[in-house]
Structure formats: structure tokens, C-alpha cells
Design a protein around this nucleic acid. Sequence first.
DNA 1: GCATAAACGTGATTAATCCTCACATTTGCA
DNA 2: TGCAAATGTGAGGATTAATCACGTTTATGC
Lengths: 213, 213
Amino acid sequence: MEDAATPVSAQKQAASPRRAPSQQRSRERVERMLAAASALIAEQGSDAMRMGEVAERAGVSIGSLYQFFPDKRAIIWALAERYTAESQSCISAALAGISDAERLQSAFSELVDIYYRLFLAEPVIRDIWSGTQADKALRQLELADSRANAEFLSAVLKRLRPAADPATLETTAFLVWQMGEAAMRLAISVERQEGDRLVAAYKRMALRELLAE
Amino acid sequence: MEDAATPVSAQKQAASPRRAPSQQRSRERVERMLAAASALIAEQGSDAMRMGEVAERAGVSIGSLYQFFPDKRAIIWALAERYTAESQSCISAALAGISDAERLQSAFSELVDIYYRLFLAEPVIRDIWSGTQADKALRQLELADSRANAEFLSAVLKRLRPAADPATLETTAFLVWQMGEAAMRLAISVERQEGDRLVAAYKRMALRELLAE
DNA sequence: GCATAAACGTGATTAATCCTCACATTTGCA
DNA sequence: TGCAAATGTGAGGATTAATCACGTTTATGC
């Protein structure tokens, strides 16, 4: 886990390569950098987050920051990757082994609620996934994450409806999942009450689709 | 129309006010600025669009540009507003007067196809609505646009299902519409073939919801 | 025609930021 | 102990959005 979230993976993006922290000392510093970035994003949003501020709050120089993160987006990317890794294990656990409609219904409903509460409560997640569309690397991360989660869902669907075309089920699962993320983003951007209604409506819509013959 | 798209409306945003073009001369210049911006966005994306480049290509000074647009986002906003105004009239026309399920089905299906083709064909639209989430003013514009379009749709639904709770129908229409925009954004960001499948799946899902008892 | 105010036009300059780089320091290890 | 690699530093380069003081054009009243 500490390994997976290592910022070196941010190289996948585009910028010049950066060293991965190999010493204990620097690993701790990188943690401080991420923590500082997280705090600043929570306070002002990732757009207003200044690299100098991150460095200052982490107690490192701006140069050290750039030693481990090729650019500003890489920091955000690293935070996003942690969240996706964490949530993916939750989701796989919640959907594992389900093979009847009732359990799918309750598990899915609960999953949506958990996600919704998470989005409402965590300003950092909200900020990062709001800006997703603007950043190619983040978008790719979200797509990959979504595909992975949709796979758990389509696995359940295939068990529930063995006669149906598997490819169609996969498309359905992916779409339902993406619609869910969009519904969350929408729900948190409107009044709380309307958001609740929208999430409920999404649940109905998604379940109707998932449980349809 | 020329009036509605006037960049003075960009004042609604946040930046310092700017003069609205009142002379013929300046109105033509503003058109040139918007055209230049549109071309640059089509070529390189709005992020890479430089204000100096816009001015140069429009044949005006950077100062003139800022005389009519308080900031960079205002230009993009003005372009976005034109597109929304244009599409809204199309949508209202397509959905007007529908009061039976068959016609709703065919009209909705056609509308989705039109939108999808538009997104595929117009790089400017694609760019602007991709970056929507990152910009508050654009997000508001899209939300308002979506609400307006959803209203056309919910009007149809209310005629189709007079016994149903109107508030629920409104929420459904809004959600279906937003899901549609999200589906479009998703579809154009993946391989063409998968995009087609996703749009088709969205259509099925949306129509199932819209025509449900 | 003339005067005057308002609208318009200009581009060098300012300000804010991301990011680099030449050099100093610390750590792991033979 | 000594050296190579890793790590740390922060002044400064580079980019670019946005300003502003001043010059020019247009509309309008007489």
C-alpha cells in the first residue's frame, strides 16, 4: 500500500521523471508533502494550492517537493491514487460473492450511500474528482478505476443473468458506474435536499437497469 | 441573438466589469475575438489558448481583448453561452407537444444521436464541456442549461404520466438529462466503438426510466 | 463645422506562479 | 574511512494572465 501510492507512479503522466524515495527519511518527507497538499486542498481547493505553500507547510524546500513530484498535478494524482486504491478494495468486498437480486439491490444501495456520504464529507475527494475532467492523467485514473469497479459489478450481473450477452452486461455495468460518479458530482453541487433526491433517483434508475430482464 | 451572446453577460461571473460593445466597430471586433478564440480552442484546446494569441489572431491588441472580456474564462464562457442558447432552442423544438410514449421514444433517441454527433464533430464544444467541472461559472451555466432542458422533458413526462408525482418527474428528468451529458463526455473519451455502445446503453437506460410506469 | 465627452485602442509593464538548476549536505555501503 | 548515490536548498528563469496610463476614434449637441 505504501508502495502502491509511491509518487514515482506519477511518471505515467507526462513530465520529466523523478526519483522515488528510497530512504526512510525521504519517505517520511514525502508523506508530509502529501499531508500538506491534502490540507491545503481541503482549505482552498487544488486550484488555489500553491507549490510554495505545500513545501512550506511540509517543512521542506520547494526543490525537495519537485524532487519527488514532477509537477503540481502529480501531487494531486498521488492523492487521488490513494483514494481509488482504498475505495476499490471496499467495493470489491461489498460486491464479492453476490449472486441473487435481493443482495445485489441492498449491497448496491448501501454502496451508493457510502459513496455519497464520502463525497459530502471529504472536501479533498470532492475537489479532486471535480477537477477530474480537466486533467488528462486524472481522467485516465478515474476511468481505470471505474472500469475496475464496473468489473466487479458485471461479474455479479453475469452470475445473475447467465443467459444475457456478457459484452452487453459489461457495457451496462461500466455505464451504470460512471453514471453513479456523475450523479455524485451532481448531487454534491446542488442543495443538500435536492442532492438527496437525485441520489435516490439514481439508485432507482440504476437498479431498474441492473435488475432488468 | 447577437444581443444575448454579448460578452457583457460575462459580468455575471466574478471579475471586474467590462464595457459592452456599443459601436458597430467594436461589435465586429468582439466577433473577431470570439472567432479567434474558437479557432485556437479547436486547434489546441482552451487550456493552451493564450490571450496574446487570441488578440493577435483577431487583429487587436491585448488591451482591447481585456476591454470586453474581464478574463480568459469569460471568453470561453461567452462561447459556451452561444452553444447552449443554440442547442436549447433545438431541444425545445424537438420535445414540444409530445404526449405519447412512441413519439417521446423516437424524439429522445434522435436527440441523443444529434448530441452525440455534435460532441464528436465539434472540438470546441468538446473542449469547453470537458473543462466544465473545473470552472465554477461554466458549471453554473451548464447546470442552468441542463435544468432548462430537463424542464422540456419533464413537461412531456407530466403529460404522459399525469398521475405521477410532479416533483419526482422533475427530478427524474433532470437526472436523466445530466446522465446524458455525462454519458456523452464519457463516450467521446473512449474508443469510438465503445462510445457508440455506451451511448446506445444510455439510451436504453434513459428510455426505460422515462417510460417506466 | 467645431467642441467635447464617451467609447475605444494600445502594448509595455506588473504580478503571480510553476519549475529548474547549480551547488551543498546526508546517507548507505564497501 | 571514503566515496557514490541520494537527498536538500532556494534564488532565479520562464511563462503568461491581467493592468494602466495615455493616445485615437466616434457620437452628439450646437
